[in-house]
Design a protein around this nucleic acid. Structure first.
Length: 157
DNA sequence: ACCGGAAACT
DNA sequence: AGTTTCCGGT
């Protein structure tokens, strides 16, 4: 039988799930703040946000059901009170060239992840054996979405 | 709604 | 580098 870890699967998710190691606590080396695509993944992972953003359609495809709310939540996380969908979507558009995302044309508020890129670039799968991802996964899942500007995470020293 | 250049900010 | 802000164009 397969030795891989079981994939996360919500009760009502239609067979779609990320492998556990796709979850990462923070951003890639270089930037300290959470990245937008991490945040999107985070919302997508939680069932309480299925009315706001959810997987839909093809593999890796998701639809933003409530653009204003997603923008609001992103604004809270980044402490940008004036965030809106216009600006958030600009950030998503920068992912096109980076090949992290692309737009599903014709479908409103619908984008699609390029998992091969997202996964391979950000997580050295080959190094999974002794990677901190399995540990990080717990950290990630335990995250309640504390804003990066929160005093809790800001300066302790 | 969606696109992408340009400049500013971190 | 990864956005945030702004905006003219489709």
């Amino acid at each position: 039988m397969k030795s891989g870890r079981r994939e996360r699967e919500g009760p009502q998710s239609k067979g779609f799930a990320f492998p556990d190691w796709a979850y990462k606590p923070e951003s890639s080396p270089g930037s300290r703040q959470i990245q937008l695509w991490h945040f999107i993944l985070e919302l997508l992972q939680k069932e309480e946000y299925q009315g706001v953003i959810a997987w839909q359609g093809d593999y890796g495809e998701f639809v933003i059901k409530d653009p204003d709310e997603v923008a609001r939540l992103w604004g809270i996380r980044k402490c940008k009170p004036h965030m809106n969908y216009d600006k958030l979507s600009r950030a998503l558009r920068y992912y096109y060239n980076k090949r992290i995302l692309h737009k599903t044309k014709g479908k409103r508020f619908t984008y699609k992840f390029n998992f091969s890129k997202v996964v391979l670039v950000n997580y050295p799968i080959l190094d999974m054996a002794n990677s901190p991802f399995f540990l990080a996964q717990n950290h990630f899942n335990g995250s309640t979405g504390t804003p990066d500007c929160s005093p809790e995470v800001r300066g302790v020293g």
